Amino acid sequence: MARARPFESYSVTTGLALVLLLVWLVVSVLASGAGKSVPTYLESQGAAGRILIFLFGPLIHQGVDLLLGNLLFLLAIGPFVESRVGWRQYLLFIALAGYALTVLAYLLGMATVGISGVTHALTGREAGARLGDLSGAIGTSPVETLVVALVFIYQISQLPAGGSIVAHAGGLVLGFLIAVGVATDYLEQNWLEERIQW
Rank of each mutant, 00 (worst) to 15 (best):
M1F: 14
E188C: 01
E126S: 05
V27T: 11
R84T: 10
A137R: 15
T145R: 11
A48R: 09
Y186Q: 10
S83P: 06
A183C: 08
W24C: 08
Q155K: 13
L107V: 09
V166R: 07
N70R: 06
I178A: 13
T184D: 15
G171F: 09
R195E: 05
M110D: 01
V118D: 03
Q62L: 10
S44E: 01
G49E: 03
Q189I: 00
P58F: 01
L172I: 03
L52C: 08
G63R: 07
L72I: 11
G170R: 02
S157A: 11
W198C: 07
I156F: 11
L75V: 08
L67G: 07
Q158T: 14
R3M: 10
Q155A: 02
A105P: 05
S37V: 01
P39E: 07
S83H: 06
G128R: 06
Y41K: 05
G132S: 10
V182F: 15
I178T: 13
G114F: 12
G15P: 05
A4G: 09
A2V: 13
V118W: 02
W87S: 15
G63H: 09
L67W: 08
I165D: 00
V147L: 11
L68W: 10
I60D: 05
R195H: 11
R5K: 15
T123P: 01
L107W: 02
P142H: 02
V23K: 04
V166Y: 00
G181L: 05
L122H: 02
A2R: 15
D133C: 02
A48C: 00
L96H: 01
S9Q: 14
R130V: 14
N70L: 02
Y154D: 04
P6F: 09
R125K: 06
R125P: 00
L108G: 09
F56S: 13
T140F: 03
P79D: 06
N190F: 07
G181F: 09
T140V: 13
P39M: 08
V64K: 08
S157F: 02
T140P: 00
F176E: 03
E43R: 15
T119R: 01
I51Y: 13
A169Y: 02
D65L: 13
F152L: 07
L20A: 06
V182L: 14
P142S: 08
V81F: 11
T145K: 08
V151F: 08
L16V: 12
L96I: 01
P6C: 10
A105F: 04
V23A: 10
Y154T: 14
V173F: 06
A137F: 06
I53N: 03
G49C: 10
E8Y: 14
V23D: 12
E193G: 15
A17D: 02
A129H: 07
G35P: 03
F80V: 14
N190W: 10
G69P: 09
P6Q: 10
L146T: 15
L104I: 04
D133L: 03
I94K: 00
G139D: 08
Q197K: 15
I156R: 07
G33H: 04
G170L: 00
A97S: 04
L52P: 00
L174Q: 05
V29S: 06
G46M: 00
V103Q: 04
F56E: 04
V148Q: 04
V26R: 04
D133A: 13
A169R: 06
V81I: 06
A100M: 01
A2P: 15
E193T: 13
R3W: 14
